[in-house]
Design a protein around this nucleic acid. Sequence first.
DNA 1: TCCTGTAGTGTTAAGCTTAACATCAAACGG
DNA 2: CCGTTTGATGTTAAGCTTAACACTACAGGA
Lengths: 345, 345
Amino acid sequence: MATEKGDFLKGKANLIKVAEHAGVSAMTVSRVINQPSKVADATRQRVEAALDALGYVPNLAANTLRRKRSGVIVAMVPTIDNSVFSDTIQGISDALETAGYQLLLGCTSYSLEKEEKLTRAFLGRRPDGVILTGSLHTDVTRNLLSNAGIPVVEMWDIAEGHIDMAVGFDNFQAGYDIATYMLGRGYKNIGYVAGTEDHEAHENRAAKRSAGIYAAFEDACLPPPVRKNVDDPLNIECCGAKAADLVASHKEIDALICANEIIGVGAIKALQLGGLVVPDDVSVAGIGDASIAGLIHPGLTTIRILGNRIGQRSAEVILECLKDGSAAKHQEDIGFHLVVRGSTK
Amino acid sequence: MATEKGDFLKGKANLIKVAEHAGVSAMTVSRVINQPSKVADATRQRVEAALDALGYVPNLAANTLRRKRSGVIVAMVPTIDNSVFSDTIQGISDALETAGYQLLLGCTSYSLEKEEKLTRAFLGRRPDGVILTGSLHTDVTRNLLSNAGIPVVEMWDIAEGHIDMAVGFDNFQAGYDIATYMLGRGYKNIGYVAGTEDHEAHENRAAKRSAGIYAAFEDACLPPPVRKNVDDPLNIECCGAKAADLVASHKEIDALICANEIIGVGAIKALQLGGLVVPDDVSVAGIGDASIAGLIHPGLTTIRILGNRIGQRSAEVILECLKDGSAAKHQEDIGFHLVVRGSTK
DNA sequence: TCCTGTAGTGTTAAGCTTAACATCAAACGG
DNA sequence: CCGTTTGATGTTAAGCTTAACACTACAGGA
């Protein structure tokens, strides 16, 4: 099958071919597609027949180039195989689809350098908006996005000094609230299991949660909880083992606060394996509410973060900007819920 | 800040501006970016300085238009908030990123019509390849993709009559294997819990699993298992309730096969709530191995499908086609593993 | 009848990049 | 020293679409 001259979607037509087929100008075909009301009925029907006959598929690269808008929104998350962020992506995807926008997705793997690289590459696509995760980025990333002249939403973390807009929750408050709840339940010796906190994006949010937890202890006039760090806060077995270590080495511990739900679930499993009863011997609480938190037995008492809603609102905020051209710096706190299950008493 | 003339990434430069700044032609700048070895060292350094000074970000819309390739790969999945497909997307994303391609992601919500709509919209972006889920599509979708002149991979399901290439596993075999395993363990009265199967994409794969299960019973000269349908095979509580119903109404049942891991986990939870002991009173097996399957107690005996690997290989197959220009119809069976946990004895 | 407005359609050029070809100077071989 | 190759750079046009403007024909008002 010879590759005919024409759009490079092989064998397919461009506006000009359709126009010839229908006996009109290319502009009229363009109008049939974009502003059908401006074309006479008879002409429109003829053009529609031609579009159909030739199987025309518009070339959005040319469209983007000419119109100076792409209909693409970029989203960058640390990882997708984590149910937390996949919920968020689903929320974004649904909101964008409704509005006819397309989603260009990138994974930063919790690396700011990778985020910078992706940002550079994605901006070349001239997206109409960018959604990224967290509030910690390289200077170059911030610069690129600030100068791009498009709406930018940083999601998941509400903080000072955002690039443009933000949708998320207060990580400090989440830590503060779960710690306050646990202290209120009367536990006397609370341990804390968290990831090691360096300056990478993910850990930044984790550090704020930790700060909130410590603040709650301080406000209660108590010394900070005994802490154990885990290297890989997303690996259940590894996290659980560390939690069990902590309890083994500090027999007085009657409750654990875990910096995320992975650690929390891992801790429950590991403690049970070690012959302890949750919550009778040791209670466990976490932050984050992936489905596993509710499915294990006992269920994990935790802070439910509304990942899907964060994604949905992030996308909507971008879309509102694009519609209104509004320059109002939007910052939205989605909040969170305390979910009490059987892992605490 | 006045919007200067230039690329529509506001205030930013295009090749021509960079060229002026460096005192060369636009073509030389293009070469510095795409084929640096063809430019004299001194010139290159001057151009690189100009690129840096003006913060040039290439316009990939123009690039795509001219080069007839976009560097974009489209992927369509039924849903992302399910850990099964998020693993797959992660695999795709990682493979593409390594090769410098970008991922345009769409959600079909298990609707063939939505898939068709998305296909049409995405092809306008002139992707270099398309990955979609399952082997059931509307005729229009199949036509659009066949005529697009780009590599197409249907993933998750190996079947006859693929559009182009396929990467996945044999759903019939998965059903056959889990049923054979259960029959081999000596269970006498096995119940089967599955979603209602209509002609939607997802249910097509489910139907093949069912067929495999029935075939195993037939090969063992046994009547088909008692079956209970669930309306929403992705809702844990709903699935669990139906499974418990089945067991309650058929006291003789000593084991359940569940069409997916959601149903399996839901069944275990619901049976336990009803006072039954798994696996002593009733054993449970599923198909699919999301993390919850291993975290609940007892763990779910199931078929592990390598979602991440399916995604990774799907992307790699596309990339190989793009490199070689190979037209070999590739079909790849990723296989699956039987994972035996505590929910069966 | 003439003017004005408007609906419908066409023409031109621009948006940014790169393939293909053209040019020029220096290096090279004899 | 000349013809030729090679390396470095420039020029032109094309890729497809649409904004902006131009044009035509006809309707309606004075």
